[in-house]
Design a protein around this nucleic acid. Structure first.
Length: 483
RNA sequence: CGGGGCGUGGCGCAGUCCGGUAGCGCACCGGUAUGGGGUACCGGCGGUCGGAGGUUCGAAUCCUCUCGCCCCGACCA
């Protein structure tokens, strides 16, 4: 296990200055870069590769539930966006407007979509006549724009990438079922692919999506300050959008009804979660299942004669590995092995394979795990069989580590002062009873800056006193500060 | 949008208070020796100091305006 920080001293301390650590690790690991346009960031190939892997996993899961992909326009005419009152009101402060086309002023400005309900629902209205046209199950991968004031790479940028699913159903029950189904897809994605444990639950009314009947969320705990990150949301829109956009249909009795809608989204913000949940003092730590590079082979040699020998051995080892693994051979000759070790650790590659003359002589390679730093000699012939299992083990170990953090930093509190102190001290998630009143919710928010992240599905057996007003309550919620 | 800080070669910084025509480390290019945890030495290339205007014989330095970034708050996927 490597303990000295070496060059990594250049990286801000992950415990003492987490925000700075984040900014630096994003840049140094070449995940993202600043852009000339205020509030926007450039996602570099290494960051985008992670997103693509996440995307692929999620896309497969979405399609497996019977949803098809489609694409709707970037622009929404002003009038259309304004149809659903709560919806506009909620998004108004963050909408960007197109007022001119070429030299001509538009008669009706276009909104750049902050989300697409307002453009998709009117189209669904056209497509739906009968109950036989339902359900409509569509997802789109897109960019959206929300005029944010404090941009942070991946976590909050003016333009970001996501998928947004939009469905229409004949009954509220069916819509609810879909809403929960998709939330569970997100939960599974996070836990299985990203090694991030999450708390699924319901949002309080004040935190729900503008225009929704109910919003469900998965909340993850970040490292460093142990703040929460809303990592995916799923909304049951009820018939609010069905009514205003007139998505109506005749049932099998010839009776007219409005359709029930759902929408659900997961964004590039999740990349920020991967960084913040797993990263450590040496940089990123990629979950093997989505890591852009799962293993890197670093050749070690002195003289040109050795170089040839080593590089051909590297090639052989590489060719011997299962072709579905993402393996990279780092043959650069302008960097020393030590330099490469540090760089790949910073980038979080799960496994490093070192191969030098000494290894060739004994027909082995040195295998080093990023998660534990553990180093071991593996016979070359055994590597192909061993590597997939090792990656699984690392994935599991990372999940367990994240779960341990979540568990250790989650505490049930009954005393308001304790809640306040935990919030101030970045102590993690605080579980407490809540009477359900907005007044109590607000008080906590203004006084402690912690918010109700969700009302977890898993609830205690007994009731208890509201953390603020003391009223006996059935509901336990998670309070935490959030990104 | 409110409070604070900062913008000087690709990156990190010094120089700004007390104006005199730009410097250091890293990176980059060339070389020699190296190469199992950011290798050493030698020789180079590169900036007009975020932008605009003003004061002055002369501005990175002083004044005004402006843009951007970072941190803290209000809002958020």
């Amino acid at each position: 296990m490597v303990t000295d920080r070496g060059y990594v001293e250049e990286l801000a301390d992950v415990e003492d200055d987490f925000d700075r650590w984040y900014v630096e690790v994003v840049r140094k690991a070449e995940m993202a870069d600043d852009s000339p346009v205020r509030g926007t960031k450039i996602i570099r190939p290494y960051g985008f590769a992670l997103w693509e892997n996440i995307q692929r996993q999620l896309d497969d899961r979405i399609k497996a539930t019977g949803v098809e992909n489609a694409y709707f326009p970037l622009f929404i005419p002003k009038g259309m966006l304004e149809r659903e009152a709560e919806h506009v009101e909620g998004f108004a402060p963050e909408v960007a407007w197109v007022t001119h086309g070429g030299h001509r002023k538009l008669e009706e400005p276009w909104a750049v979509r902050p989300t697409s309900e307002a453009i998709i629902c009117p189209i669904y209205a056209r497509w739906v006549q009968s109950y036989r046209d339902l359900p409509i199950l569509i997802n789109q991968w897109s960019n959206v724009v929300r005029w944010e004031e404090r941009p942070r790479a991946f976590l909050r940028t003016v333009e970001f990438l996501w998928q947004e699913g939009h469905t229409a159903h004949a009954s509220l029950e069916e819509a609810e079922e879909r809403t929960l189904m998709m939330l569970d897809v997100y939960r599974d994605l996070c836990e299985t692919e990203l090694a991030i444990p999450v708390i699924p639950g319901l949002k309080s009314d004040s935190e729900k999506f503008a225009g929704a009947l109910r919003t469900y969320t998965i909340e993850a705990m970040m490292g460093g300050k142990h703040w929460a990150l809303q990592s995916g949301t799923s909304h049951n829109l009820g018939d609010h959008f069905g009514r205003v956009f007139e998505i109506n249909f005749l049932d099998d009795q010839g009776k007219r009804h409005f359709a029930y809608n759902t929408s659900w989204g997961l964004s590039t913000r999740i990349v920020g979660a991967v960084i913040m949940v797993h990263g450590d003092e040496r940089g990123l730590k990629m979950p093997p299942r989505v890591a852009p590079t799962q293993a890197v082979i670093v050749p070690i040699w002195r003289k040109n004669k050795e170089r040839e020998e080593v590089e051909s051995a590297v090639q052989q080892v590489r060719d011997s590995l299962p072709s579905n693994l993402r393996v990279k051979a780092d043959l650069r000759d302008d960097k020393t092995p030590g330099w490469k070790f540090n760089e790949w650790e910073l980038k979080g590659v799960p496994v490093r394979i070192e191969l030098g003359p000494r290894d060739i002589a004994s027909e082995q390679v040195m295998v080093v795990r990023r998660d534990t730093g553990e180093k071991s000699a593996v016979p070359m012939t055994e590597l192909p069989a061993l590597l997939p299992g090792l990656l699984d083990e690392i994935q599991d170990n990372m999940y367990q580590a994240a779960l341990r953090m979540l568990t250790e930093k989650s505490v049930r509190v009954t005393d308001y002062e304790e809640l306040r102190q935990r919030a101030a001290g970045n102590a993690g998630f605080s579980y407490a009873y809540w009477c359900g009143s907005e007044a109590c919710e607000d008080k906590v928010k203004t006084e402690t800056r912690a918010t109700i992240r969700c009302i977890p599905f898993t609830q205690p057996e007994q009731s208890g006193p509201c953390i603020v007003c003391g009223t006996d309550s059935e509901t336990e919620v998670v309070f935490a500060r959030a990104y």
